[in-house]
């Protein structure tokens, strides 16, 4: 169980830091954080695990995505040019 979680986690973390698309990186970050909370449950730290999901998985990636949406210009510009024709 621990090995499965840690394998998913490491793959998720690697994909987070290497993926080209920012939103996909956020998605993989979510996977990583949720699997870490699984490891906390294996370590009998249920409260930390749930707080991890609540705060880390619930709020932090949403904040990050919010930042991505607000600072990403590319998609919007592309769609504007495609529309102007």
């Amino acid at each position: 169980m621990f090995l499965v979680f840690s394998a998913v986690e490491i793959v998720g973390a690697i994909l987070t830091v290497t993926s080209k698309k920012l939103v996909r990186a956020a998605f993989w970050l979510l996977i990583t954080l949720i699997t870490i909370s699984g490891i906390y449950i294996l370590l009998r730290a249920e409260f930390v695990a749930l707080i991890q999901i609540l705060v880390y998985a619930g709020a932090v990636p949403v904040l990050l995505l919010f930042g991505i949406m607000l600072t990403r210009k590319k998609m919007l510009e592309e769609s504007e040019t495609s529309e102007a024709k």
Partner: peptide, 23 residues
């Protein structure tokens, strides 16, 4: 033992999926 916290944690995963769907 932490059931209420679990419910809140599970419900809090929704916004992330919504913003993913939107993007």
């Amino acid at each position: 033992a932490l059931g209420v916290l679990f419910v809140l944690a599970a419900l809090s995963l929704g916004p992330f999926a919504i913003i993913l769907a939107g993007y």
